[in-house]
Design a protein around this nucleic acid. Sequence first.
DNA 1: CGATTAATGAAACTGGAGTCCCGTTATGGG
DNA 2: CCCATAACGGGACTCCAGTTTCATTAATCG
Lengths: 209, 209
Amino acid sequence: MGIEDAGPGTVRPGGRTARVRASVLRAAGDALAEHGFAHLDLVDVARRAEVGKTTVYRRWGTVTGLVADLLLEMAEESLPRTETGSLLGDLKANARLVQRTLADPRQGALFKAVLAAATGEEKTAEALHRFYDTRVKEWAPCVQQAVDRGEIPQGTDAHEVIRAVSAPLYYRLLTSGDRLDEAAADRAAEAAVAAARAGAYLRGDDGHA
Amino acid sequence: MGIEDAGPGTVRPGGRTARVRASVLRAAGDALAEHGFAHLDLVDVARRAEVGKTTVYRRWGTVTGLVADLLLEMAEESLPRTETGSLLGDLKANARLVQRTLADPRQGALFKAVLAAATGEEKTAEALHRFYDTRVKEWAPCVQQAVDRGEIPQGTDAHEVIRAVSAPLYYRLLTSGDRLDEAAADRAAEAAVAAARAGAYLRGDDGHA
DNA sequence: CGATTAATGAAACTGGAGTCCCGTTATGGG
DNA sequence: CCCATAACGGGACTCCAGTTTCATTAATCG
């Protein structure tokens, strides 16, 4: 009975506490990109961040807890969205952005590690879902504009179209050893547009015309 | 210099050795499905398999090594493929199969764990890639048949079409909390067919007609 | 069937991840 | 500017995953 929880960092979040968090999250990202999720150890993160290991254990506790907080920060920094005037152009821009991110050695390894961490730990999974919801929502407007222009049918689920662009890129990253190139990105965008035109992403409909 | 490696289990693979392997792999699958990759510990696997922990460490060494062997076995047991006479019918059957597998609590958790394990460990990743190559190759013929029937353009990359069906299902499994239902499976199949018809999966082509 | 030795398994051992204790630092409120 | 105390950090401690050793069991070959 009474107010409980409110872990460390919630009462005096300014100054040192904020610096420690930034330093630890940066170190965690580096370590994840280098060693992967499986071999991440909090003592190493503490060393890199030049912070006492007690602090890391007290504030984040586990590897998955730390990744969850890292995802919160990653969700905040949003990337600028371009507008090309056509759905295919916008989705290609999106696909290229995702492709470049996943193909980059550091970023690609980091995303793989974060996905692995979200597997199995509910709290981390929720943070990951919020991260992708944020990204999808940022890009959904370009699909709605395409509907308004008459490029694709009324009632198209904008979020589903955006997800359709990323899906094959992530699938390829995880299940094949092939490199993610621009051709793969363009193909993903083209496939999504073709499917959207055919009404495959109509909301609350199973696709039968 | 000379012949080296050839670890335990390669000289006398019959009888007990085979029984131990089967028992350990089954236990590993159970443990992965229950606790996830992050919390898997080989001592627990040894206990479940009723096998000395020394044996597990000697033959598989690490968690990722054990998962790699598990994937080799998973690749061998192939699922029967149905033939419905139309590309959409065949791909829907494939999509439903994947969807049922991933939606099943045990199987879904196991696949998540296996994907997580393949992240970061090259040897495990290779085993995973072989597993998916096997599955994709099993289903590719139905796409070729569709080409022969004239449903989709000549020069369509059959493997890419099959991957396009699974991709959105895996993407949803990993990046959202939403349940994988039949509607999602059907939508994946329909989108793949629409994109294939539009020529998005032409081999060695970036999609421009 | 018996000899050879590959493979297993019990037990003792070790190193380091994670915890605990308590003194030190510096934030935020008055 | 000063006080109360939130948050940090060093170091000792614990516990168990992973290793090593060696005796026991059983697969293969003649």
